[in-house]
């Protein structure tokens, strides 16, 4: 079977649907990054927040026999780490990249410890797919949207909501002011650091949703370091999308589509070494960053703690 033949036989709608699914945690990380960074706080710790959420979602969902309870607990855990990151960056003025790295190492250490101490044999109850027997049969749209994980839907909604919040509400106006010129916000009577804390917490909640995707949708168990860099890929998508939700979301597809395609090719028996294929998103991340960073404009006060 030659390549052209295979390329013709691939179901591209199915492929896009797979890419959308795979984009979910990355997009959550990107959205989380946007809230935090628009308020002026670099958030390298999204990876760790996703990881701890993945673990807590798993553990609590098993204990409570409820994926919903697990989800809430996972988000709360990610928000605790986000709070820690906020405390470091805002109150103690730790270098924000160091603080984020600390969050990552902390999450890896704690989840690794708990995983080894408690094991992860039981499988967690899944969150449902959003599936509708009728809508599902609509061509294209049906496959893309109506038999997909709940969290993918949540992600799509958050993309829209985040856009509105950031650009059409007082909250968004204040957030952007705080990340751009905090002193101006302060003199306008806006509590700069409180805005920053809250936005960092929002980013934690979103990372929490992203983390839940791993243990409550993809597989029903936890393995150490299972987030495998997707938080960082989310940051690349955020930069690519110039700190704006919709473009950042579209950028996530850039990272997941090629992998979905490679998966299809393999299914049709095209011989590709899977270890090397798995590096595709990472390679693409590097290439896009190298190509795009100089043309993006981060919030002006990004990374600078606010001192009066």
């Amino acid at each position: 079977m030659d390549l052209v033949d295979v390329l013709l036989r691939i179901d591209y709608v199915f492929l896009l649907a797979a890419a959308l699914r795979a984009a979910t945690p990355i997009a959550f990380a990107a959205l989380g990054g946007i809230f935090s960074e628009r308020a002026g706080v670099i958030n390298i710790g999204l990876e760790g927040m996703m990881l701890i959420s993945a673990y807590v979602c798993y553990r609590v969902a098993v204990l409570a026999a409820s994926p919903a309870v697990g989800l809430v607990a996972g988000m709360a855990a990610a928000m605790v780490l986000a709070g820690l990151h906020g405390l470091f960056s805002i109150r103690y003025q730790t270098n924000q990249v160091v603080s984020g790295t600390v969050v990552n190492i902390f999450a890896a250490g704690i989840t690794g410890f708990l995983f080894r101490a408690l094991g992860a044999q039981e499988s967690a109850p899944y969150l449902p797919n959003i599936s509708h027997p009728l809508l599902k049969s609509i061509p294209v749209i049906g496959t893309l949207l109506f038999d997909q994980p709940l969290l993918m839907w949540v992600m799509l909604i958050v993309v829209v909501v985040a856009t509105v919040v950031l650009f059409r509400t007082p909250w968004g106006l204040r957030t952007r002011a705080v990340g751009e010129l905090p002193r101006a916000a302060d003199t306008a009577g806006i509590p700069v650091n409180r805005m920053r804390y809250l936005n960092v917490l929002i980013s934690g909640a979103l990372a929490g949703l992203g983390g839940a995707f791993f243990t409550l949708h993809t597989v029903s168990t936890f393995t150490p370091l299972m987030t495998s860099g997707q938080g960082f890929i989310g940051l690349a998508a955020m930069i690519f999308g110039n700190w704006t939700p919709i473009p950042a979301f579209l950028a996530t597809l850039l990272f997941t589509l090629p992998q979905a395609l490679a998966g299809q090719l393999q299914m049709f028996g095209v011989p590709l070494p899977y270890q090397l294929l798995s590096t595709l998103p990472y390679l693409l991340t590097i290439i896009t960053l190298a190509g795009v960073v100089r043309r993006s404009t981060p919030p002006a006060a990004l990374g600078t703690p606010y001192v009066k």
């Binding site: 390298i44 990249v97 495998s228 860099g229 960082f232 890929i233 390679l283 991340t285 590097i286 960053l289």
Partner: peptide, 10 residues
């Protein structure tokens, strides 16, 4: 930061 992490996975 991001590039070196990506290079780890590779």
């Amino acid at each position: 930061v991001v590039v070196t992490i990506m290079l780890n996975y590779i």
